[in-house]
Amino acid sequence: MSHRTFFFVVLGLVLVSLGLTKAIENEYYFFAGYVILQYIVLATAWNILGGFTGYVNFGSAGFFAAGAYTTVAVVKWVDLPLLALIPLSGIVCGLIGLATGYLTLRLRGVYFAIATLALAIVLETIIANWEHVGGAAGAFVIRPKEVMFFDSYVEFLFWTMSLLAAIAVFAARYIQHSRFGRGLAAIRDDEGVAESMGVPTLKLKLMSTTISGALMGLAGAPFVYYVTYIDPPSAFNLEYAVNAVAMPMIGGPTSWLGPVIGAVLLGGAQQIATVTISSELNLLIVGIMLVVFVIVAPDGIVGLVRRLFSKDPRA
């Protein structure tokens, strides 16, 4: 499928999600759908660095929270509409991604992963001590009473997140099939060889951390309007970091489709479990599924399907 055709498919899905807000009465579906879409953005963002480039980021919650807190910081200062705030979160988190890249990309493997974990902790400490955004006590944000076209603010948030998911997935697919994406795959396979084959590894890695960070910022930007109250433990929740890693791994980290499948499956299962069993069960589900997939299908669902339908048994 060409990028053009895919663009219209994605655009069509965004319009369908707009139609759904008119067709479905029960607000809960949008409440749950928002979370799944948010995970599509977060998992897709993680996968650009983790799956395409091979650098495992355990600090996704830090980027997500930075995106959320950018919204808070700006709103406390000047009242802008959400759609104007989202790009700002993207820019801020893109810059954090770039800085992280400069500071940590000399590290490889587990050392890089540990450094990203530390980054999230540093960010959380800064936020917890920043009075302007509420510090450790947290901050309230009042939703606008009315929003144009939509019947409720949750429906608007749902549609906004579907738009962000469309942007993230389109970007990931575009990157995967581009010269840039092939360069990232070469880095993932063997960085030293990639460099000797002319791939400017440092530049590509920095681009990768920047794009990945920016997309995570987008995922976090509307969060504060979704929950209306935000504090560091909820924004920097381990759940985001774990899900951002687990979803692409379960779906298949080498393809743009993997994180989408993973987010829908795992995010969906979590939402159902939250309602029917208990909200504490979420991470247990993630843990069990991750263990199962690492053993049964190390290349995720996408890899499993490819293996089953491939003619070459070794391919």
């Binding site: 092939r182 070469a186 990639a194 084959m197 002319g198």
Partner: peptide
């Protein structure tokens, strides 16, 4: 394709 697109 990698060296063709990058090094070459």
């Amino acid at each position: 394709v990698i060296p063709l697109e990058y090094a070459a």
